[in-house]
Simulated scan of single mutants.
Amino acid sequence: MRILINASLAPSLYNFRGPMIREMVGRGFEVHASAPDISASDRDRIRALGATPHALPLQRSGLGVGSDLRYFQALRRLIDQVRPNRVLNYTIKPNIWGSLAARSRGVPAVSMVTGLGFVFAPAQGLKQRLVKTLARRLYGFALRRNLAILFQNPDDVADFVAAGLLRDRRRVRMIAGSGIDLAHYSPVPLPDQAVFLMIARYLRAKGIAEYGMACALVRQACPEVRCLLVGMPDDGPDGVSEAEVRRLCGGAIEILGKYDDVRRAIAKASVYVLPSYREGTPRSSLEAMAMGRPLITTDVPGCRETVRAGRNGILVPVRNAEALAQAMISLARDPARRAAMGAQSLEIARDHFAVDKVNDIIIETLRSANQAREVN
């Protein structure tokens, strides 16, 4: 079988989908992968997985009709060139335009919904509301002839149904996020000191402001505690500058910048914190779980999938820095509880989020011979 995978970010092909691509190649698939702005190092890493990279012109953010149509035409040409048996898309723009391009060429497609993204984000102003209404309708139309749609949590399925984007639940397949490679992210002993860590782009929707404010409160109650932040600023409309992060936390956070290998950061931490407003299934939480870290995260779609409350972590209300700080303080003062929860995180990662289990579902879905019929 020949597979074309369409992504919106080249590094995600080897950072998040590397085990999937290796497994496909190991099973005898011929794998092609497309993404925008593929650097020389990206090409080398994708080829090392056994796949063939293809650079396509995709504007990842924004709603530019002209640029999106150029991407659609490039996808059609690539499908004509590669002649895949199946097309696999993930993230919004590849899901929309990859599905439409595959449909126009008579190739069955599968899309992975890794989060709701801008199509479901609150709109500001009449123009933005109109554009997002159009984008939703286009999304629903694009997915209608997909062989299957892979979701990471049941809340996203319910929202797609409520928005009219999903009319046939029989095409839904559930996967445990992108899965986690347990051989790569292996357990490391917890440090004796209470050290909190968040890994994220500096976005309000990731809860970066709440983390900053909570860390300031935690350091007042427990001055010996360390609070770490790994990531980088984002220039999108939801971005938060590093200066603002420093102002919010009052110097309580050690800002470490971007890590190419986040295992080094997780090894320093005794608790992983993600106060996000919503996720598909957060990859960073799975990485921390596989390395034996307890979690503190928000009781929202996606994030709550990673925590068995009271067993491997604590769920807190969204947008509530005070509740987040109290949860952090409770674990800062209880090393035995941190250790017990960390052990449970590892067990849950092994039982529910192992990447080979996720890959089996994806590959068997792609092997399915019967294309889902259009539901009018």
Rank of each mutant, 00 (worst) to 15 (best):
P294A: 03
R308V: 14
A309Q: 14
E287D: 08
N312L: 08
I296Y: 07
C303G: 14
V307S: 09
Y277C: 01
M289T: 10
V300E: 09
V300A: 06
S285F: 01
R283L: 08
G310R: 02
E287M: 06
V316I: 06
G292L: 10
M289S: 10
I296M: 11
P275I: 00
Y277A: 01
R293A: 05
R283K: 15
M291N: 08
L274E: 11
G313K: 02
L274N: 14
T281K: 08
L286K: 07
I296A: 06
L286I: 06
V300Y: 13
M289Y: 14
I296D: 12
A309D: 11
T298Y: 10
M291G: 09
R278Q: 15
P301C: 07
Y277F: 15
T281I: 14
M291C: 02
M289Q: 14
S285I: 14
V307Q: 06
G280C: 12
V307K: 05
R304F: 12
T298P: 06
S284Q: 00
Y277G: 00
P294S: 03
T281W: 03
N312H: 10
P294E: 07
I296G: 01
E287G: 10
R308H: 11
R278N: 07
R311N: 07
S276P: 07
S276I: 06
R278A: 09
M291V: 12
T281G: 00
R278C: 08
D299N: 15
V316Y: 00
E279M: 10
E279L: 14
P282S: 11
P275G: 03
A309E: 15
D299V: 05
S285K: 06
I314L: 15
S285L: 15
I314K: 02
R304K: 15
R293L: 02
D299Y: 09
R311I: 11
P301D: 09
G313T: 01
R278K: 14
A290C: 11
T297K: 03
I296V: 14
R308M: 07
M291I: 12
V316L: 00
P275C: 00
R278L: 03
L274F: 12
I314M: 04
A309V: 03
G302H: 02
S284Y: 04
L315C: 06
